[in-house]
Design a protein around this nucleic acid. Structure first.
Lengths: 209, 209, 209, 209
DNA sequence: CATGAATGAGTGTTCATTCAT
DNA sequence: AATGAATGAACACTCATTCAT
């Protein structure tokens, strides 16, 4: 969860039980296998047996960790969203006393860096893997909340009379979609750094308008 | 197609051959059926037989118009994109001599109005129906082209030294994603009209920055 | 149904629709295939695909007629029981005015002749095919009813004071199980005719006791 | 084994090795578990893992005592038949000098009492658990032998000229199936004692006829 | 001997697609 | 063209069985 997480505290037990560590590894291997396959095949040609094979686990083990095929894709979306959430959360906290510009710059960096490991993954997930009711969309809502908080905490930097919801709605959407676009879209004339600068400029000029 | 279409000229033959009209109707019925089903079921539970049944045609007829199941979903995406393309194209032409603000306002109206008939459809298509290589994504590229043209044609309204690609990239993405967000996202405090105003404000303040 | 069937009237339409005739044939082919397989394999090694293959129909067609594997075995039991029911019913009616001895002789003949076509089938069904709640056992109850009727209609042939339920219970069970035993059990010294004679003697000496 | 067992002598070692006692207990626990499950589930939904769980042993242990799934059911049938066999055998010996009526009464009692502990078990085993070639059916043959012996040993109580095989065949089958019927069939008007009396009457009137 | 995680062959079943009518 | 019964390839998933611990 993004906003309501008060204490970012680490788990006390750094060492989990080997059983759990093993399970985690298997789940990760399966999700990674799905990503690998998704890059070659269309969604509807993916089979659970193929996933298991590529993941290097038996089909029986796969079903030990996932109740059915759908659950694998739900988990894949979940893993991605949680990763982004975590970064956004951290950025928000770490920039609690930064200026709006500093926070936004960090936010845009976070969004883009979060995808840098596999720039194609986001596009793959959003276009190839059905996810209507998998809680995916709620990400936008949570981001809206984060921006609401961030903006509300810096009243001095805004003109009077601006609607907080409108500002958060527009700014959150800008950061999210422009960051994604920066990664998956071409304008080859622009470097990633250039795009980041432009996104920041766009959000700031809106918030200050 | 969006940009490269020079003459928007109407087809000369207003009356098509009954054969073709019938075919068009059947195709439409099938695509409408898919939409209807998509609102109730998940993508992977949809069957061609069910589509045919809901469309009121025989499964044999369905295969008369679509070579295989995938083609149905490709056509569904195609129909949607073409509809938007058509509107954007028309808006661009109709506002050839408008100010940047006028054009942008019209563009935002077009994007939003295009989805007004079925506000959930876009979200459904983009989240539930796999479409990696269906030419869907190219829409963003085409929109970039449109904005490039539109901005380049109005040099007086911009500050000197701004990079045309950057401006088009950011502006096109803002209009597209904020319009979609305006339809499918909540901030219940904001009316659609409010959102339109904010989107316009955001794009303009960026372009003028 | 055995007892409660008042009018034995034939279906008016001697000629069914070809669709129905075809369906009936397919169902019969499938059930016959199961019997054929059962004679070679154990119950739990039978597969639906094998059944379909032996029946000469596609697995898809098989599932057009049976919702799942179990339904095939339920139908197999059903077919057998209905066949016996029909014969018992007919015998009862045809011997409405016979003496008790005549009726019993006919009943025993009916039971045994009903299995003559495939003497091993009954044993196969009762030992190899699970059928707890398939209405199979109700056969004994129905037979009890038939015997109750038959005995009650012939009070002159019994000693006074005999309990009708007791007589029907014992007689019905004797006819059913001795008939089955006559077919599936060896005493090779005895011909089937001898066994029939002994069964009749046993039932009569009990009823007259 | 029923007939060929000459000396019923007890095992000399009352105390078995703990290893064997433990093994016996585990086997019993497993068979009991199967019975318990059979009362709730259909045969084909029973799994070895479920059996092990209900029996309170690990699946590995289960396979220590049974080579495969089928063996469990074979053993279950075996346990039941041996129990009946033992009783019949004892009854035969204990009534070596009884009259035919006394022996038959004891035999019927033995058959019925043997099932009194779990009246539903016999029906369950015979209808739900496939057992074609598990030696189950041989029970009827063995019982025939027992009756042959019993009747042959009491020539004075029969009419001259009666065929010994016929008498044994009919009598053995009557006792077996009527006893089973007495337990699992309704005629609620009849008490179990009444049924016993009627069964005895039926067998005697036949043998004396 | 006991355990139970892991295996993977095998099964029931579905559903895209065909084609005789 | 239209139909929809029939097909059978292919898949999700189970569960009997093994074996490392």
């Amino acid at each position: 969860m993004l906003v309501p997480m008060k204490s970012p505290g680490r788990r006390k037990t750094t060492r989990r039980k080997p059983r759990q560590r093993r399970a985690r590894q298997t789940v990760e291997a399966i999700l990674d296998a799905v990503v690998r396959i998704l890059k070659r095949e269309r969604f509807d040609t993916i089979t659970t047996n193929h996933i298991a094979e590529v993941a290097g686990v038996s089909i029986g083990s796969l079903y030990q960790y996932f109740p059915d095929k759908r659950a694998i894709f739900v988990a894949l979306h979940g893993r991605h969203i949680e990763e982004i959430d975590r970064r956004i959360q951290r950025t928000l906290v770490e920039n609690a006393s930064s200026s709006l510009e500093g926070l936004l710059r960090a936010m845009i960096d976070a969004m883009i860096d979060a995808h840098a490991g596999d720039p194609a993954l986001y596009h793959l997930l959003s276009t190839e893997v059905p996810h209507r009711a998998d809680g995916t969309m709620d990400f936008a809502v949570r981001l809206h909340g984060v921006f609401r908080l961030a903006i509300a905490a810096r009243p001095g930097e805004l003109k009077k009379g601006r609607n907080l919801d409108a500002l958060a709605f527009v700014a959150a959407n800008m950061v999210e979609s422009l960051s994604h676009a920066a990664l998956s879209q071409r304008p080859a004339t622009l470097s990633l750094a250039d795009k980041k600068k432009e996104i920041l400029r766009a959000v700031l000029s809106y918030l200050h308008s």
